[in-house]
């Protein structure tokens, strides 16, 4: 496996002290490889957002370390963190958070300009990125004139404009219908697979499990049990490896959503090797 883009080691966040102390995140470790999608799920109040804030260098952990591309981000002084957020992370928010006075193009370009890229170059890059995401005809539309899916694609372009190592997405499909939600997930998948970025998603949306390489369950500020996902080779459904019916192949283990799929898989294999 390639070297992780992003490593969180024993992150802890405590609020208050003494009897009033609340531990929002406790001793959480996580690493994200290039091209990997990690989905963090958990009940409300489990510490998902606090963890995401720490992972995005928006909140300093009480203890633990955070590395991004071998830079110890958790050790950097406060004044250097905006630059890390600007260049190493792309953020995708639940309610898009586009700047209402700026067009789609300007919403993306402004983040490049914050990173010191000149206006013309920033707009050119933003237009290219939006074009790739299918928004070439919507460049000069204000957010209020865009659909939810278009807004989220603009937000995704904005997250990618400074070529970040990791995209952090907070409930990226929460305000979208299922079709548009799947479309956004496909785009996030492309961002991970084709561009080699790490993607960390915090969500309640069970559908996202299909796209994730790993699903982590956060409860009471800790990861309870790690769930590794695999794709059923028969029906194509994403399945949790643990407890799933399996079949051994020549070099690998196959995981199935049901015994039916496994039997079908095995029967097809038998048929393929049987003499005619």
């Amino acid at each position: 496996m390639s070297e992780p883009l992003f490593v969180a080691e024993a992150l802890t966040k405590r609020y208050g002290s003494g009897a009033a102390e609340v531990v929002a995140v406790r001793d959480v470790s996580l690493s994200v490889a290039p091209g990997e999608i990690v989905l963090i799920m958990g009940p409300s109040g489990s510490g998902k957002t606090t963890l995401l804030l720490m992972l995005g260098a928006l909140l300093r952990p009480t203890a633990g370390k955070l590395w991004v591309r071998s830079t110890l981000v958790s050790g950097l002084p406060e004044r250097k963190l905006p630059d890390v957020r600007l260049r190493q992370f792309g953020f995708v928010f639940q309610d898009f958070n586009l700047l209402s006075a700026l067009s789609a193009l300007e919403n993306v370009a402004v983040v490049a300009e914050l990173a010191g890229i000149g206006g013309g170059q920033a707009r050119k890059r933003a237009a290219h990125l939006l074009g790739e995401l299918g928004l070439g005809a919507r460049l000069h539309f204000l957010p209020e004139k865009l659909s939810g899916g278009e807004k989220q694609r603009v937000a995704l372009a904005r997250a990618l404009i400074n070529d970040p190592a990791v995209v952090l997405a907070d409930e990226p499909t929460a305000n979208l219908d299922s079709k548009i939600g799947r479309e956004i997930m496909r785009l996030l998948q492309r961002v991970a697979r084709e561009q080699g970025r790490g993607v960390v998603i915090v969500s309640h949306d069970q559908r996202l499990k299909e796209t994730a390489d790993r699903v982590l369950w956060l409860e009471d500020g800790q990861f309870k049990a790690m769930v590794t996902m695999a794709v059923d080779p028969v029906c194509g459904m994403a399945v949790e490896r643990e407890g799933a019916p399996t079949a051994e192949g020549k070099d690998q283990t196959y995981f199935f959503c049901s015994r039916g799929c496994r039997d079908e898989f095995l029967a097809e294999r038998l048929e393929a090797v049987a003499p005619r």
């Binding site: 905006p82 992370f89 953020f91 958070n97």
Partner: peptide, 13 residues
């Protein structure tokens, strides 16, 4: 205010 917060989160100084 919220939009300035978004810009700050994205990395604006």
């Amino acid at each position: 205010r919220k939009e300035y917060g978004v810009l700050k989160a994205l990395g604006a100084r």
